[in-house]
């Protein structure tokens, strides 16, 4: 999977978690840009992504997650080494 493919696979997860079909995400999207992206939704996103991609994020990685681009890069690193 390329980073672009990971980003488009993340899109329906965001749609589901925020229950918003019109949501738009790109690499620069942060929690401030999305209504309802609080700490609870953040854990939900992480868990949904773990299930979708079959990966597990480390505690330290969760702490350092800054934006969607960083999220994509982390998944990419886990999938493609």
């Amino acid at each position: 999977m390329t980073e672009a493919e990971i980003l488009s696979a993340l899109h329906p997860i965001f749609q589901d978690v925020f229950d918003d079909d019109d949501i738009v995400i790109d690499a620069d999207t942060t929690a401030e840009d999305v209504e309802g992206w609080d700490s609870l939704a953040h854990v939900n996103l992480v868990v949904a992504a773990e299930q979708r991609f079959g990966v597990k994020f480390r505690t330290a990685e969760l702490e350092s997650m800054r934006n969607v681009g960083h999220f994509v890069a982390l998944i990419n690193k886990k999938l493609n080494g």
């Binding site: 854990v43 299930q51 505690t59």
Partner: peptide
């Protein structure tokens, strides 16, 4: 343990 340290969750969302 990860969910506990991250969010004090005993029961993970899944």
């Amino acid at each position: 343990a990860t969910r506990w340290h991250q969010a004090k969750q005993l029961v993970s969302p899944e």
